[in-house]
Design a protein around this nucleic acid. Structure first.
Length: 287
DNA sequence: ACCCAGGGTCGTC
DNA sequence: GACGACCCTGGG
């Protein structure tokens, strides 16, 4: 049963910025410029018309409630952008470029597996792998005579052997995804424990125990899932590049010390470093 | 045809 | 702590 939710005024909301800034992998641009994607048991199309945002699709619950939560609509991004714009001209430019970015509240399990897959990988391929996982192990939802697939639950994904995963194109990440799935299924409290953990450092330590989760992936999970740690600053090749170009100016970006970037980010962006990271990432990668 | 890079992690030294 | 290996795909 199709539902609709219309947001009449939302200054910091640009579908392209939100879906192309690298935090999510299941949203696809449509011919009319809108985006369609799957989250939870929802299939939603997001379209911006003038200042209105139209959410339309199939929802497992109340579309308004689901969307307000997922799109982080109760957070004041104007205020955040104002604060971050004062840091320096560089960040101000990146914010201007990605002014409609919002950090999604994505499912923890899906984010865990998705970012294990992201390791030493590129975005088009990551999207393809996650799509195939969903098609093979998730639930089918039909909307507008088209088939969509939810991201598989831990139980659903446990049906996949290492060989199955390799066939779906995961490459060397097959064992990591398999083992992480097994751990989650063997300890039903694990995901809830992670969600309940208040201490960010402790949370990071627990995440690092999963095969395939290193410092970068752990930070992404904490920032892009409902764990919502806006203060963490994931450092990948693009962020290292942009931070080097803007501040450090080392001739060889691969030699830039990670700790130096971390300290710089904390010092400049404080507890909003994660959001700053998204503006910088999107700016450097797209502009 | 060949090489390179991609939202890194892991095992080894 | 540094270093190479790791699967796969698209682009130069």
């Amino acid at each position: 049963m199709e539902q609709e939710y219309i947001l009449n005024e939302c200054s910091s909301f640009e579908p392209e910025h939100i879906f192309e800034c690298g935090q999510c992998f299941r949203w696809n641009k449509q011919i009319d410029g809108s985006y369609t994607g799957v989250f939870g048991q929802n299939v939603i199309n997001v379209k911006k018309e003038n200042s209105k945002i139209i959410f339309k699709g199939i929802s497992s619950g109340d579309i308004k409630k689901e969307c307000r939560e997922y799109f982080d609509l109760d957070r004041d991004y104007e205020n955040i952008k104002n604060k971050l714009s004062k840091v320096d001209g560089n960040l101000k430019s990146s914010i201007k470029y990605g002014s409609g970015i919002r950090i999604l509240n994505q499912d923890l399990w899906e984010t865990l597996i998705s970012f294990i897959i992201s390791a030493n990988n590129n975005i088009p391929r990551i999207k393809g792998i996650i799509e195939r996982l969903s098609k093979n192990y998730g639930n089918k939802i039909i909307w507008n005579e088209q088939e969509y697939y939810t991201f598989p639950t831990p139980i659903q994904l446990s049906k996949a052997s290492v060989e199955d995963l390799r066939k779906l194109g995961l490459g060397f990440r097959d064992v990591r995804v398999y083992e992480t799935t097994r751990i989650i299924n063997e300890n039903k409290q694990k995901l809830k424990q992670l969600s309940d953990e208040k201490d960010t450092e402790k949370l990071r330590e627990v995440l690092l125990e999963f095969p395939g989760v290193g410092p970068k992936v752990a930070d992404c999970i904490m920032l892009f899932s409902c764990l919502k740690r806006l203060e963490v600053f994931p450092i990948d090749v693009w962020v290292r590049r942009v931070m080097n170009e803007l501040y450090i100016k080392n001739e060889d970006e691969t030699k830039v010390n990670k700790k130096e970037i971390e300290n710089l980010a904390k010092e400049k962006y404080g507890n909003l470093a994660g959001i700053a990271q998204q503006y910088l990432f999107y700016w450097r990668r797209e502009a």
